[in-house]
C-alpha cells in the first residue's frame, strides 16, 4: 500500500486539507473521510452521475477522479449549494416541481443543473436534455426534472441566485 498523501483544496469555499491513499477516489474521500455523503455512489464507473460534483466549476463524476488529482482545485458539492439561510433556486425549483421521487440521483442532478445554468442561463429543452444526459434517474421519467431546470433558469433570470426561504 502506497503512502498516504496530503491534499490541499477548497471545498464549498473552505480551505481543506486531507490525507488519502493514492488509490482512493474523490468520491470515497468525500464520503468516508470528509463525511460529505451528499454525493452518492450509483455505479462507480461514471455512468450514472449520482456522484457529480463541480471541480473548478465543471461537473465531474467524483467516482472517476482520484482524490490526489484535486490538489489546489476549487470543489463544490451538494452540501455547499444552499446558503445558511435558504435554498438555492435550483433546489427550490426541484422541490416545487416534484422533480424527485426516491431522491438518490437528486444531488447529482442539482450539481449538473447548476453547472448548466452557469454556462447557459437560458437553455432550451433540448439543451437541458442534452446536458443532463449523463445523470440517470429511474423514478421520474425526467419530465419534472426538465421543468425544474426551466423554472430554475427563469427564477435565476429574475432573482439572481439569491436563496429562497422555504416554509417547511
Amino acid at each position: 500500500m502506497a503512502k498516504k498523501r496530503v491534499v490541499s483544496t477548497t471545498i464549498n469555499g473552505n480551505q481543506t486539507e486531507f490525507l488519502c491513499e493514492p488509490r482512493q477516489t474523490l468520491l470515497e474521500v468525500l464520503r468516508d473521510t470528509l463525511n460529505l455523503t451528499g454525493a452518492k455512489e450509483g455505479c462507480s464507473n461514471g455512468n450514472c452521475g449520482a456522484c457529480t460534483v463541480l471541480v473548478d466549476g465543471r461537473p465531474v463524476d467524483s467516482c472517476l477522479v482520484l482524490a490526489v488529482e484535486i490538489e489546489g482545485a476549487d470543489l463544490e458539492t451538494i452540501e455547499g449549494v444552499a446558503c445558511s439561510e435558504a435554498l438555492h433556486p435550483v433546489q427550490q425549483c426541484y422541490l416545487e416541481n416534484a422533480a424527485l421521487q426516491c431522491g438518490i440521483c437528486t444531488p447529482g442532478f442539482i450539481m449538473s443543473t447548476k453547472a448548466l445554468l452557469d454556462e447557459n442561463s437560458s437553455p432550451s429543452e433540448d439543451d437541458i436534455r442534452f446536458y443532463l444526459a449523463g445523470n440517470l434517474c429511474r423514478c421520474t421519467g425526467y419530465d419534472k426534472i426538465v421543468r425544474a431546470v426551466q423554472d430554475s433558469a427563469e427564477l435565476m433570470a429574475s432573482n439572481g441566485i439569491d436563496g429562497v426561504q422555504i416554509d417547511r
Binding site: 464520503r31 460529505l36 455523503t37 451528499g38 454525493a39 452518492k40 455512489e41 458539492t77 451538494i78 452540501e79 449549494v81 444552499a82 435554498l87 433546489q91 426541484y94 422541490l95 416545487e96 416534484a98 424527485l100 431522491g103 438518490i104 437528486t106 444531488p107 442539482i110 422555504i166 416554509d167 417547511r168
Partner: peptide, 17 residues
C-alpha cells in the same frame, strides 16, 4: 412541498450507504 424534500435536495438525507 414534500416533507422530506429539503433533506433530499441538500444531500442531507441518509441512505443505506
Amino acid at each position: 412541498i414534500r416533507h422530506d424534500g429539503v433533506d433530499k435536495v441538500t444531500g442531507r438525507a441518509l441512505y443505506g450507504a
